[in-house]
Design a protein around this nucleic acid. Structure first.
Length: 706
DNA sequence: TATCCTCGAGTTCC
DNA sequence: CTCGAGGATA
């Protein structure tokens, strides 16, 4: 090792050289540490090198290398974990709560695939481990990173922590070149109890349940702490893959086991819903003696080719479902009912409860949904809870729906105080005193105050900076609220002028509570980072009623640029004419949604606010998915008659994946008509218009020719 | 017109 | 995570 020159005395050339040397040295040390369990550097020496590297980078920030060791695998930056995007998204599962839901699941899949009830359809069934999911990426058999689920698209890099878990192999033999193994990190009951005993002896944090203990342990910035925590890992799925593991789910799990992963021994193959339910009962029976927490049973279509055909809805696969165990229940007293006002003005009642432990978590609030729910009625006027209403002072039974959202299941009328009165839902907004109206047929009551209602204004701003919208780092709900209260930010455009108005020398922001030079700089950087922003996010961020994530992206893909979108919305004001028709024609957009979007561009106040925002931004046009090479990209196709090889839903999904637009009726704009047996008027019209027509086989040949 | 499916908007706790 | 409602479909 060369002599250590004081960092202040380093010349630029020397710094550059030393950074290069440190990069090599540290990466060799990493490799030795992670692959051999036999580091050739002591921990202290390793840390010293790392610190020196960071110090030099800090002084000569422009010299920081692309392969800087401070960004490398296994290195958690001091202020948190680095983010890694999943090559294949980590989705959640839809849920089943009873046998009927499971039968429906089987039925839905058969319908989608066009399978009759007497065709064999196998499923795997396995316990759903209550831990946290983790994705492990192996390249050439080497673990290169471990990433938490995060929001499903981007997770946190916890590689150095994952490497301390003994169930996670560091290297694999005879595996695909690229292999992402997914599974659950969890802690056993015994280890959890022992850990909590140790923690309380030391005066450390005591965890509420094994899940929290596992999560807290995996997200330690110091991998040494994680190493001291007895975490385990079950592999049950995969992400990116260069070669298939097996033709079936069960085969793939077996293969993962052969590769050295722990897989759950209660994973079995079932020939249908009856067998699945039987296995569910068996697992439920063993639940208490398993030694680790599970919260249900997961069923997956076994045939991977069928999984592929079934594909995904927006957030869940069609080919899997989680059958949840019944929720834990607890009784407590309802101390009060508060009303919250959302960004659309919806008045939502929230129950304030005497704190009670439900499923290992202390709950003190629960949702009451809406006016009718408190009265004991559902949206169709049907009685729920036996028609019992909820009153302040009542003893209520609480559960966590889907083990997350606290809800009230029942009311004990025998314990109702004699002076309890039916809850009177407010008719004026508690935040701004505007009238709160309930549209006929609507379940929610809404504040009519619009942006004069401070609650609506703040909630809209929170939505604007939220994930999926502008997602500005350093600007969360708390910050938005503070800035709004102080009058620094009244509308989205103000965020982008914040620095000009208040950032002078950072003095003003710095003098505020909770803000220092660093956090202020980070915030301004976070804001600058989002000046360039994709069109879909901008539309979503506007917070237009009925226009969420999915619809925003549909609109963005349809109009491609902000200018085109805005011009069309202005042209469509009158709810008629070509611009309006074009909008309604977008698949997934109907009159209600269209009216809602258009009205955002009608009111001069809101329109002006949008214009002020757009003036601050560089909006990136939406790019249609790369369908180059697809023979049907950009074509409008219509299916008619009976399809024999696949269902309509499947045909539509596949066509869209290839960049085609699927329409319901034949017009001059139609490029291809796919006519099955029994095609009628549409085929005739297509012939009249001279539209290219083919049968299902012809279509399949066309799209498979890629 | 009725039914099914998907999405949006609301929710808690860590 | 659940509910309600909008949109597509039969």
């Amino acid at each position: 090792m060369t002599s250590k020159i004081a960092i202040d005395a380093l010349s630029e050339a020397e710094a550059k050289l030393e950074l290069a040397r440190l990069a090599v040295e540290l990466s060799a040390a990493n490799a030795a540490y992670y692959t051999e369990d036999n580091p050739d550097l002591t921990d202290d020496a390793y840390d010293a090198l790392k610190r020196r590297n960071s110090a030099i980078e800090k002084r000569f920030s422009h010299l920081k290398r692309d392969d800087s060791p401070s960004d490398q695998v296994g290195a958690a930056p001091a202020d948190g974990f680095s983010k890694i995007a999943h090559e294949v998204a980590m989705l959640s599962l839809s849920n089943a709560f009873d046998a009927e839901d499971v039968m429906d699941f089987d039925g839905r899949i058969r319908k989608y695939l066009g399978l009759s009830t007497d065709t064999d359809l196998g499923f795997t069934a396995e316990p759903k481990i209550d831990g946290l999911s983790l994705s492990l990426r192996y390249e050439d058999g080497q673990l290169v990173h471990a990433v938490t689920r995060g929001d499903g698209a981007v997770g946190e890099n916890v590689t150095s922590n994952a490497l301390t878990i003994s169930d996670i192999p560091h290297t694999l033999q005879d595996c695909p070149k690229v292999l992402e193994v997914r599974g659950e990190v969890y802690m056993s009951h015994a280890d959890f109890t022992a850990l909590n005993e140790r923690q309380s002896e030391r005066g450390g944090k005591v965890f509420a349940n094994p899940r929290n203990a596992a999560a807290g342990s995996l997200r330690q910035l110091d991998a040494e702490i994680t190493k001291s925590r007895p975490l385990r890992f079950f592999a049950y799925a995969w992400g990116a893959l260069s070669d298939p593991l097996a033709p079936t789910q069960m085969g793939a799990i077996t293969r993962l086991k052969e590769l050295g992963f722990s897989t759950n021994p209660l994973t079995v193959l079932c020939d249908g819903p009856e067998a699945m339910l039987a296995h569910y009962a068996k697992i439920e029976e063993q639940r208490a003696t398993l030694g680790y927490d599970i919260d249900g049973v997961v069923y997956k279509v076994d045939d991977l080719a069928l999984q592929d055909r079934l594909g995904f809805r927006s957030t869940t696969p069609r080919w899997a479902i989680a059958h949840k165990f019944p929720a834990e229940l607890a009784w407590t007293r309802l101390e009060g009912i508060d009303i919250q006002v959302g960004r659309t003005g919806a008045l939502s009642p929230v129950a304030r409860l005497q704190p009670v432990t439900v499923g290992g978590v202390v709950v003190s609030n629960a949702t009451l949904h809406n006016e009718d729910y408190i009265k004991g009625l559902d949206s169709k006027g049907q009685e729920i809870r036996g028609g019992k209403d909820i009153r302040v002072g009542d003893w209520v039974q609480v559960y966590r729906a889907g083990d997350v959202i606290p809800k009230i299941a029942d009311v004990d009328l025998s314990k109702r105080p004699t002076d309890a009165v039916p809850y009177q839902f407010p008719a004026i907004c508690p935040e701004c005193n505007s009238e709160a109206l309930r549209e006929p047929g609507d379940a929610v009551r809404r504040c009519s105050g619009g942006l004069i209602c401070p609650a609506q204004a703040v909630e809209k701003l929170k939505h604007f900076v939220a994930r999926g919208a502008f997602d500005i780092e350093g600007m969360g709900a708390k910050q938005v609220e503070q800035f709004y209260v102080d009058g620094w930010i009244k509308e989205p455009a103000d965020i982008f002028t914040l620095k000009d108005r208040y950032g002078q020398g950072l003095q003003q922001l710095k003098n505020r509570e909770g803000w220092g030079e660093k956090s202020a700089n980070n915030l301004f950087q976070g804001i600058e980072d989002k000046r360039n922003i994709p069109l879909g996010r901008v539309i979503f961020a506007l917070g237009i009623r009925h226009v969420g994530d999915a619809a925003s992206n549909l609109l963005a893909l349809h109009y491609e640029t902000w200018d085109a979108f805005e011009a069309a919305m202005v042209d469509a004001q009158k709810h008629e004419g070509p611009a309006w028709d074009d909008l309604i024609d977008v698949d997934g957009v109907g009159a209600v949604m269209a009216g809602s979007v258009v009205s955002a561009f009608a009111q001069s106040g809101e329109r002006a606010s949008i214009d002020r925002l757009v003036a601050q931004l560089n909006i990136i046009p939406a790019e249609r998915a790369d369908t180059s090479g697809s023979p049907v990209a950009g074509k409008t196709v219509v299916f008619t008659g009976t399809l024999e090889k696949m269902t309509r839903a499947e045909a539509k999904a596949r066509a869209e994946r290839l960049g085609a637009k699927v329409s319901g009726s034949v017009s001059a704009k139609t490029d291809i008509l796919i006519a099955g047996p029994g095609a009628g008027s549409k085929a005739k019209k297509a012939a009249d218009l001279g539209v290219q027509t083919m049968d299902e086989d012809g279509w399949l040949a066309l799209i498979n020719a890629v």
